[in-house]
Design a protein around this nucleic acid. Structure first.
Length: 296
DNA sequence: AACCCGTGGCG
DNA sequence: TCGCCAAGGGT
């Protein structure tokens, strides 16, 4: 009965998804491709729970690429708030401008056109094509990678970097039809987010536990563990940048250097500030210099 | 390829 | 408590 296992696997995952999917706002019927794109960018490395309220307010304020393209960088960065990685907000703005200028205000469906947009990489392009346009494409995010690695390789976590072989396999697994493939993609993602989680997988609730190679092998440990060493955080430039950006989001007028958050290493604070200016996240005005969020 | 880029919550 | 992790992308 297992001479053709893939259809059974597809069905198990998509049926589970139909029964257990979360009602996330960007999944509601009628959500525009632009709204889907905005959600995908916000969700890059940021949990659903923190994205949801920001996304709702965002789409109410700027429903279309044209509306958002007309916003200033300062209001964009304040609306982005504490989602993190604020360069994403500026890239999203650049994407809105590009969509207006190059695509008549409509999010393109073409993969290459999507990849040309700032802040849109392989994952986001595939997600927009699959979830906004119903195209058949391979959506390979951290959830899907983890589920497939456990299910098929018998390892707890995927390799640190995404390989062509991994992409090829995921592509080969895709159901033939566009509608089925989109459901398979979102089903795998949701399974990874709710059941096959990184920390404490709930295998008793998994629709494909009986087929899982990691489970069958007795949950062997992660062979790449030594290569996953988390990037240092305490005392990094990133931490300083975060402090500076938080202060500038709150400020109602430009701040002189001495009014910016203190830091034990003044040279590092200056370097971080220079970096923020170079990234377009901070603007300098006047003499002596004062700092604020950039305008348009 | 390796490193950089925020923030908050959970086990 | 604290390390790890979260719908990645750019360089």
């Amino acid at each position: 009965m297992d001479d053709d296992p893939w259809p059974a696997l597809w069905h198990a995952v998509t049926a589970w998804y139909a029964a257990h999917r979360r009602d996330l706002p960007w999944r509601e019927p009628g959500t525009s491709p632009w709204a889907v794109l905005v959600s995908e960018v916000m969700l890059q490395q940021t949990p659903v729970a923190r994205v949801e309220p920001v996304w709702r307010a965002w789409m109410r304020r700027w429903p279309t690429p044209a509306a958002f393209a007309a916003a200033g960088h300062d209001e964009v960065l304040r609306a982005w708030g504490t989602l993190g990685y604020p360069r994403r907000a500026l890239r999203l703005h650049g994407t809105a401008v590009a969509v207006v200028e190059r695509h008549g205000g409509e999010v393109p469906r073409d993969r290459e056109a999507l990849l040309d947009l700032p802040g849109v990489g392989g994952y986001t392009a595939a997600a927009v094509r699959a979830f906004a346009f119903g195209e058949r494409d391979t959506v390979l995010d951290t959830n899907v990678r983890r589920v497939l690695t456990r299910l098929l390789d018998g390892l707890p976590l995927p390799p640190p970097s995404l390989s062509r072989a991994e992409e090829r396999r995921a592509s080969d697994l895709l159901p033939p039809g566009p509608a089925d493939s989109a459901l398979w993609n979102i089903g795998l993602m949701e399974l990874g987010a709710l059941v096959c989680t990184a920390r404490s997988p709930r295998c008793e609730a998994c629709p494909v536990a009986e087929r899982c190679a990691w489970r069958a092998a007795g949950y062997p440990p992660d062979p790449y563990a030594d290569r996953r060493r988390a990037q240092a955080w305490e005392g990094t430039d990133r931490q300083v940048r975060g402090r500076l950006m938080a202060a500038l989001r709150e400020a109602t007028e430009p701040l002189p250097l001495e009014a910016l958050p203190a830091w034990h290493d003044e040279a590092q604070r200056a370097r971080a500030l220079t970096g923020l200016v170079a990234d377009g996240l901070v603007a300098v005005t006047g003499s002596p210099a004062r700092y604020r969020l950039p305008g348009r």
